[in-house]
């Protein structure tokens, strides 16, 4: 379509459609508007909005419910975790206690054992000392006997040499006396 033809068409349309200015108010149209609007309002009120909003609200409720459930589950899990942790702590404390007790018992046992050992040692030492004393006593007695024997042997030799020598006899006695004094 060329521009002049378009122009003509526009001119024609303008001339023909002329229903007045847009500022005219047609009361009949107002009635139509109110009727159309009210009918639409009633129809939507009955068949439109409830279907849509009910589903949406139900979904909201469902999601809220799920959120609540999740929150509950989370709280439960936290509680369980806390419980577990407390149990673990308790077990650890118990173990510590047992260890401490065992250590204490061991220390005590050692103490007792040590004491007993010391006592036994003491006893052993005592016995050894006593035996040594006894042996010493015995040895002294044996030595004395030996000495007397030796003296007697010496004396008999002397006697053989110089019988009845009063001076020699005294000498032997003195010697014996000196032996006596020695422990």
């Amino acid at each position: 379509m060329s521009l002049p033809a378009l122009l003509l068409a526009v001119q024609e349309g303008g001339a023909e459609g002329g229903g007045g200015s847009p500022f005219d108010i047609n009361p009949g149209l107002m009635i139509w508007t109110v009727v159309v609007f009210l009918v639409l309002l009633v129809l939507l009120w009955k068949f439109g909005w409830p279907a849509l909003l009910k589903s949406v609200e139900e979904r909201e409720r469902r999601i809220q419910h799920q959120l609540d459930e999740a929150e509950k589950a989370r709280a439960e899990a936290a509680q369980l975790l806390e419980q577990q942790r407390r149990g673990l702590e308790q077990a650890r404390a118990e173990a510590q206690e047992i260890l401490a007790k065992a250590k204490a018992v061991a220390t005590q046992e050692r103490e007792v054992l040590l004491a007993r050992t010391r006592e036994e040692q003491e006893q052993l030492l005592d016995r050894a000392r006593r035996e040594i004393d006894a042996e010493k006593e015995k040895a002294i007695l044996a030595l004395r006997k030996e000495a007397v024997d030796l003296a007697i042997a010496a004396a008999s030799r002397l006697i053989e040499e110089k019988l009845d020598d009063e001076a020699n006899r005294r000498l032997v006695l003195e010697y014996l006396a000196s032996l006596e004094q020695r422990p």
Partner: peptide
């Protein structure tokens, strides 16, 4: 006139 005709109501 065209503008008024196009924006106003008619039968």
């Amino acid at each position: 006139a065209v503008i008024f005709a196009e924006t106003s109501d008619s039968h």
